[in-house]
Amino acid sequence: MDLLRPGSHRAEGLIDDHALVAAMLQVEVAWFDALVSVGVASREQAEIVADAAKQWQPDVAQLVVDAEATGNPVVALVKGLRAAVTDSSAAALVHRGLTSQDVLDTALVLLSRAAFVRIEDDLRGTATDLANLVRAHRNTVMAGRTLTQYAVPITFGLKAAQWLSGLLDALELVRLSAARLPVQCGGAAGTLALAGELTDEPLALVRAFADTLDLRDPGTPWHTTRTPITGIGHALVSTCDALGVIASDTVQLGRPEVGELSEGVVDGRGGSSTMPQKRNPVLGVLVRNAALQAPQLGAQLHLAAAQAVDERPDGAWHSEWNALRTLIELTVIAASQARELVSGLDIHTDVMTQRATAVADSLLAERGTGDDNPATYLGSSAEFADRILDRFERGATT
């Protein structure tokens, strides 16, 4: 948890150092199971290694210190795991045929998958609440605004439907990215040379490794082809984009001089240190915070991908780690906060109606003549809202 990242408790234990160590150990155990599948190791040896990985309690603080000597935490982790394995022949096979990048990349993929599960659940919940808003406010007239100024009448149902549309786009990306997550396995320089010394079927070994972790076998190592990482980043940034639109709209429409929406009242939330009358839109502010940070973190992943030279990168790979972890954490937190924001949103339909009526001349200026009732100039608002709602309802069963 982090004092300067309000809401970080929502992602506690998902992406921190302890979670990373657990994921790396899971990778090492899965590799040993794959060695068993091609006859390199015995099942008894695999059980010894798995038990050691389960019982060993690594000193994470010391791993942080030791990681500096080799530039990554895997070398010290493997040394410690081997020492914890009671059978010397089994210990000698721990990590044999892998390289540090195989372990760390695959561990980060596993952590990304766990995050995607959490994010998808929150996005689905938010989508359900938005769909309910669309149904309830299909005919609730409000002022439409473009470039901060009054435009033409819309409905709040259409606005909520547009939020829902962006959310469904993000949900599709999250699902697709989760389904495509690959194992990383290439050995020292992406040739599986040492794995080929262990078995005549190194590619079968990789397939077994992927199957054990329920990840995709990508066919070739991706040490310097960082599409899997930028793909994860794209799904996360797109999610923050969609959530940011919802948060920004709710914050803007919740201004006292607008007053068309407000965050639900929760005891202890939204207070000011000096002004007792204030109830700040804290959830909206924090989701916007994530949306404003996410694009640059995604850009860092692309920058690293473009500099992934040779057969293993010299710093570009390392620069991904913090960006990816921060982006995952921000997105998990924002998805949880946005779900709570939308589920508790107060819709002030009376204010929407009064304003639309009061500024009817401005809202109907495009029309030029005739009726001064904003409800008669909604175009295809209802049809568009229905189309987005239909998309949600078709996807809700999958």
Rank of each mutant, 00 (worst) to 15 (best):
L297M: 05
Q354P: 07
Q277S: 10
D310S: 12
V342K: 01
L341K: 07
V285S: 12
Q252D: 14
A242K: 00
S319E: 01
T250G: 01
T239F: 03
H302P: 07
A305S: 13
P256Y: 10
L303V: 14
S343A: 15
E311Q: 13
L253T: 05
A338K: 05
D310T: 12
L327F: 01
E329V: 15
H318G: 04
G264N: 06
E263I: 03
P281K: 13
E320C: 05
G284I: 07
E320H: 07
P256C: 11
T250D: 05
V359N: 10
R288I: 07
S248A: 13
E340S: 14
V332L: 03
V332S: 02
H318E: 00
Q307L: 14
A242P: 06
A358Y: 03
T239R: 04
W321C: 04
V282F: 01
D241Q: 14
R355F: 04
G244P: 01
A308V: 13
L327H: 06
V245F: 04
G259Q: 12
A334S: 12
L345F: 10
D249Y: 03
A360C: 01
R279H: 13
T326E: 13
V282C: 05
A306F: 14
G244T: 00
V342P: 07
R255C: 15
L253P: 02
T250H: 06
S336R: 11
D249K: 09
D310R: 11
Q293L: 11
L297T: 02
D267Y: 14
W321G: 01
V309I: 13
E260L: 02
V237G: 08
A290S: 14
G271P: 07
E260P: 08
L261K: 04
A360V: 04
L364Y: 01
D267Q: 15
E366I: 12
A305C: 12
G315Q: 09
V332C: 09
V265M: 10
L236H: 15
D267V: 15
V332M: 02
A334N: 07
V359Y: 00
A365R: 08
E340G: 13
V285E: 10
V359K: 07
A316Y: 00
G254F: 06
S362I: 11
K278V: 10
H302K: 15
S362Y: 12
E311T: 15
L303C: 11
A323H: 06
L253E: 02
P295R: 00
I246L: 00
A247M: 02
E329R: 11
P281D: 10
L364A: 11
A323T: 06
E340W: 06
S319A: 12
